[in-house]
């Protein structure tokens, strides 16, 4: 293969892998928005925290558990944390304006970052993962196993969630509860329990995203700020749309390396947000949104 195409291919794959991590965080946003109509700004920090929990369980210098055990442990811990956050904090603001939830979750994000800094310090750490740094050769094309794993896991997870929301009774109940909480409540849907479950699920997804992200590079407490970029992704894709969230993540993931490669490196930072503003200007509720005005 020609080296130009090869390079483009590699850019695409690494962009896709990054995009998948954004997509997974965005999936967490979308999930909570879909089920509870809450906007969780802490999803990025949950991912960071999940990565640290996995690292704390798996790394030799910490607990040194087998990698897969650590993964399952981290997922369980984060699901519990998500459930707890909903139970202890978010449930209290049930019914208050969305913006209260936004500010609240921003604050939770900051606190998670603070706590992670105290427990694991502020220096970058790497997760000792069996997929990190292993290369897969396809002829002349060399791709990281970590990147391929990220893409595969993300696709599988999105498909699973999509099926869950459109096929299972619980998934449909989750959606119903967000459309009209009062009506759902009267229809006997346990709205509060469903919110708890949703947050637990979002926590678990955050853990997966964290593990995948930490397999690709190092993490520190500020990694959580990635959430803002993922947030841009979620909006580009349209809130509350799971495939949209993933698509948004992939778009952002792909824009970055190409903006850096073909425009100027300073602009790769800007690209996702410029794109976000552009999308909001053209479609005020995202590319794949379910739009509509209030009925009076």
């Amino acid at each position: 293969m020609e080296s130009g195409t090869l390079e483009t291919l590699q850019l695409i794959v690494s962009g896709l892998a990054n995009g998948c991590v954004y997509g997974l965080i965005a999936l967490g946003f979308a999930l909570i928005y879909k089920a509870a109509e809450q906007v969780n700004f802490a999803q990025g920090d949950l991912m960071m925290f999940g990565a640290f929990v996995a690292l704390g369980l798996a790394n030799e210098s910490h607990m040194g558990l087998p990698f897969w055990v650590a993964c399952i442990g981290a997922i369980a811990v984060m699901a519990a944390l998500g459930w707890l956050l909903e139970r202890a904090v978010l449930r209290q603001v049930f019914g208050q304006p969305q913006i209260a939830v936004v500010i609240l979750t921003i604050a939770i994000g900051f606190l998670l970052r603070f706590v992670a800094g105290i427990i694991w310090g502020h220096d970058p750490l790497t997760l000792e993962s069996p997929i990190a740094g292993v290369n897969q050769h396809f002829g002349t094309l060399v791709l990281g196993l970590d990147e391929l794993a990220v893409i595969a896991v993300t696709l599988a997870l999105t498909g699973l969630l999509f099926g869950f929301f459109s096929r299972t009774r619980l998934g449909i109940a989750m959606q119903a509860s967000s459309q009209n909480q009062l009506a759902a409540y009267y229809m006997g849907i346990p709205v509060k329990r469903i919110h708890g479950l949703t947050w637990a699920l979002a926590g678990a997804i955050a853990a997966v995203a964290g593990i995948l992200f930490a397999s690709k590079g190092s993490i520190d407490p500020n990694t959580g700020l990635l959430g803002i970029k993922a947030f841009a992704a979620a909006v580009i894709g349209g809130f509350g749309s799971l495939p949209g969230a993933l698509a948004g993540g992939l778009i952002v993931g792909l824009i970055e390396p190409f903006a850096a490669r073909y425009v100027a490196s300073g602009y790769s930072q800007i690209a996702p947000y410029a794109m976000l503003i552009l999308v909001l200007l053209i479609r005020p509720r995202g590319l794949f949104a379910q739009v509509h005005a209030k009925k009076v």
């Binding site: 906007v39 304006p97 969305q98 913006i99 936004v102 803002i228 947030f231 841009a232 909006v235 809130f239 947000y273 976000l276 503003i277 909001l280 200007l281 005020p284 509720r285």
Partner: peptide, 13 residues
């Protein structure tokens, strides 16, 4: 044209 949360996000960006 942006409402509530979308405005918050646009201003964040």
């Amino acid at each position: 044209r942006l409402h509530g949360i979308y405005l918050a996000i646009a201003t964040l960006a």
